[in-house]
């Protein structure tokens, strides 16, 4: 589920922040981690943009599932 992926990414970003903050890694390694965090932030933003905000009425007709957009 994308929510799980979102949370995993967030946890990794927090870990990266902690690692950089401790300051015992090289600048090159920190730079790599910074890029990784930025990539994860972009991925999370994409997860948030999933979906169109549509409402569908769903039912079974025969053996077929029918989705019909519902305007409220």
């Amino acid at each position: 589920m994308s929510g799980d992926r979102y949370k995993e990414n967030e946890a990794r970003i927090e870990e990266i922040i902690r690692t950089i903050n401790i300051g015992i890694i090289t600048q090159e390694a920190a730079n790599k981690l910074r890029f990784e965090a930025e990539r994860l932030l972009v991925e999370n933003r994409k997860i948030l943009e999933k979906g169109e905000g549509q409402v569908f009425l769903v039912s079974i007709q025969g053996k077929k599932v029918v989705e019909k957009e519902l305007v409220l």
Binding site: I17, G23, Q27, N31, A37, L41
Partner: peptide, 13 residues
Amino acid sequence: FKYQVDAAYRKLV
């Protein structure tokens, strides 16, 4: 988070 990552990196530099 983005701000914290940048701030941590600047501090490290």
